[in-house]
């Protein structure tokens, strides 16, 4: 549905985006993750035909973004960072205007407006002037604007920025509901958002792709063996540590920094589960096990390790 190959954008000598390639199949929600200024917005602007790429090419819904821009524009819904709303229009008349310029046929217009407003939860604000709406509602109007013509591809630039936690959850639900029918690209620098909504992830930093895949595969890729957190009650000193270190498959043991004595981080060799051996050994030696749980790598860890790798490289 979306095919990006070696896309670059330069502003004079400044490189905003360099050689980005990725693919998104139909119905996928693709998260575009990166710190501020990484090139997310620039990439999205190229995909929506707002900016021409300096090099490379991209196809959206099967059409080239430069050569067949009109066809692409018919098939996308775009929510820029700042919702593109007219402050002096009412919600209803604004959406009607957008629907018209997006080419929604006349007979379908009213039902499309009702549907969209229902979906984004702004139906009761139909006659409110947009300038009088709160930021959160304006964002919804922006989302409604992107949805009104039922585009095949939705491109959302930080759709939840500036919303309160309740609104964020609601908007995420709306977006999740869009996957399947629509292909969605959404950019964000909020990590939990990605793990909650996206099936596919592209991490971008300094205009380059730093990582790509499903959230799970990215985590697996970065895991260097499993880490367990074990709280073992035993005699003070190094006895417990040495006991753990002797277990087969354990790579490294260390006292967890900042925790009370007896809390260890146990790193095992990749693919080896040392939990059974550890429990048995603890019991054999007459210590007591208070806690044992695997430490999952969070998206924050992935993100930081990927983006800081890029910085040092």
């Amino acid at each position: 549905m979306i095919e990006v190959s070696e896309l670059s954008k330069h502003y004079g000598d400044v490189v905003a985006v360099e050689n980005i390639s990725f693919k998104a199949e139909k119905g996928v929600i693709l998260g575009f993750l990166g710190p501020n200024g990484a090139g997310k917005t620039t990439t999205m602007r190229m995909l929506t035909c707002y900016l021409p790429p300096s090099h490379g090419e991209a196809k959206v819904a099967g059409f080239d973004i430069v050569e067949e821009s009109m066809e692409v524009r018919k098939r996308i819904g775009y929510l820029p960072e700042q919702p593109p709303v007219y402050h002096d229009m009412t919600v209803g008349s604004y959406l009607r205007f957008v629907a018209k310029i997006k080419g929604v046929p006349g007979p379908k217009l009213n039902s499309r407006l009702d549907d969209t407003m229902e979906k984004t939860g702004i139906a009761h604000h139909r006659d409110t002037v947009i300038g009088h709406l709160s930021k959160g509602y304006r964002q919804r109007v922006g989302l409604a604007q992107a949805l009104v013509h039922e585009p095949e591809v939705l491109i959302l630039d930080e759709p939840t920025v500036g919303l309160d936690p309740k609104q964020i959850i609601e908007i995420r639900e709306v977006i999740k509901g869009l996957g399947g029918d629509h292909t969605v690209i959404l950019s964000t620098h909020i990590l939990p958002e990605v793990s909650m909504t996206c099936g596919q992830l592209v991490i971008i930093n300094n205009g380059r792709i730093a990582g790509e895949g499903t959230p799970e595969s990215l985590m697996a890729q970065l895991k260097e063996g499993e880490v367990l957190r074990a709280h073992i009650d035993g005699p003070p000193g190094a006895a417990v540590r040495e006991m753990i270190a002797r277990i087969d498959g354990v790579l490294d043991v260390s006292q967890e920094p900042g925790s009370e004595e007896g809390v260890f981080l146990v790193t095992s060799l990749p693919g080896q589960d040392v939990r059974d051996a550890l429990t048995r050994q603890v019991v054999e030696d007459g210590f007591s096990l208070r806690e044992l749980r695997p430490l999952d790598m969070t998206l924050e860890d992935i993100f930081l390790s990927l983006t800081s790798e890029e910085v040092t490289a």
Binding site: K74, Y78, P80, H87, V98, I101, K102
Partner: peptide, 13 residues
């Protein structure tokens, strides 16, 4: 200024 030009430029118009 309002960014609505992005809407116009990315619409099939």
């Amino acid at each position: 200024k309002n960014g609505t030009i992005e809407l116009l430029m990315t619409s099939p118009i």
